[in-house]
Simulated scan of single mutants.
Amino acid sequence: MKISVIIPAFNAEKTIEESINSVFLQDMNELIEIIVINDGSTDLTVNVVNKIIEQNPLSKIIILNQNNQGVATARNNGVNKAIGEYIAFLDSDDVWEKYKLKRQADFLDMHLNFALVAGNFNGLGADFTLLKKIESDNSYYEVTFDNLLLKHYFQPSTVLLRKDIFVKVGGFKSGMTHAEEGLLFFKLAYSHKCALDKNITINYGNGKHAFGDSGLASNLRKMQFGELYNLCCIYRENKISVLRFIFLFFYSCAKFVRRVFIKEIILPFRR
């Protein structure tokens, strides 16, 4: 098996079918397994997934049931079950663009020194002139640990990474429910090379604003606590100096104030 697609799902009956269908559109069904982790849903998520399994007997789709433990634990449990060389994460309200996986798998096949490749999405707002272009690929740029300290370039649903390296760095912090991906990507970028595709690779949350609507990211206070926790972790691991930690702490707080202003003032005004 080439790629394992990990889909954590909590009360996703209205969106998960479109998410899974976008995996089928990758035109790599014979190389893909789909692992849905039902994270204690109380709606008809399991019924929807089972119906998809019945309708697609030639596709390998597995559903794992667990008590509600949060997205980090759900993703880790999915990876533990995975047999693919590469791991792709897909949130149950995100939709992949066609051939997203094929492009990324080809990139990792050709660039053995890269552990991870992510993609652009509406809302990222990346200034690609700040990143180093990977000369052999017109649309790919390298994202370093230093780049990642100042901006979150990687959204989980855009990412394809090598399973062995995910396991090596320890995966997601189990039980963490907000900003859990940030800590993983810090660990990956600190010790391995990571790339970002300039092309749009997903329809993020069916068009929702990154922190203005429903979903985990919309709880700005908990997201901020998660981000500050991540900074404390990499400081304790001696990945950043005390001076850099202090700077990043206040920089993160300033971004938090900006997000609150956008959510509470700008977005309601536009509606």
Rank of each mutant, 00 (worst) to 15 (best):
F256S: 00
L25H: 14
F225M: 08
R271Q: 11
N230Q: 08
H209F: 07
R236G: 15
E97V: 04
I240L: 02
E97L: 05
S41K: 03
I37V: 13
L231C: 04
Y141Q: 02
I265M: 00
I16N: 01
Y204K: 09
F172P: 02
L148G: 12
V95F: 04
N21L: 14
L116Q: 09
A217F: 02
V71T: 00
T42P: 07
N11D: 14
N77C: 08
P268N: 12
V71E: 07
A88W: 10
F225I: 14
N68H: 13
L183C: 03
T177E: 06
E18F: 06
C253D: 15
D93M: 06
F261V: 13
L108N: 02
V95E: 06
Q104P: 00
F89P: 01
S252K: 04
V79N: 05
K198S: 14
A9G: 03
K100G: 04
S252A: 15
I37N: 00
L243M: 05
L196Q: 09
N68K: 15
A189L: 05
I37M: 01
D94I: 11
L112A: 13
I7E: 02
E97R: 02
S136T: 10
D27Q: 13
S22I: 11
G84R: 01
Q224I: 02
N203F: 14
L131N: 01
G170V: 12
L161E: 11
K193W: 02
E264V: 07
E181K: 01
D39M: 11
D127L: 12
D127C: 07
G84Q: 00
V260S: 04
V48M: 11
N38K: 01
R162F: 02
I62K: 04
I240Q: 05
V260E: 07
L25E: 06
G170P: 03
N38H: 09
D27L: 12
K151L: 04
G125V: 14
G125Q: 11
S157K: 03
F10Q: 08
N206P: 10
I202F: 03
L101T: 09
F107E: 05
N138L: 10
G119N: 09
E33A: 02
Q104A: 04
V23T: 03
A210K: 09
A12Q: 07
G123P: 10
C253K: 12
N80M: 07
F172I: 00
G40V: 04
F166K: 15
S174L: 10
V49A: 01
F225R: 05
Y251D: 13
V159S: 10
V117N: 04
I37P: 00
I34C: 03
V23R: 00
I200K: 13
L64W: 01
N76G: 15
L116A: 12
D43H: 11
E18N: 12
I234S: 03
K100T: 14
D43V: 15
F186S: 03
L160R: 03
S157R: 01
E227C: 10
K255A: 08
D146G: 09
P156I: 11
Y190P: 00
F245H: 10
T15A: 10
E85F: 09
A179W: 07
V36H: 00
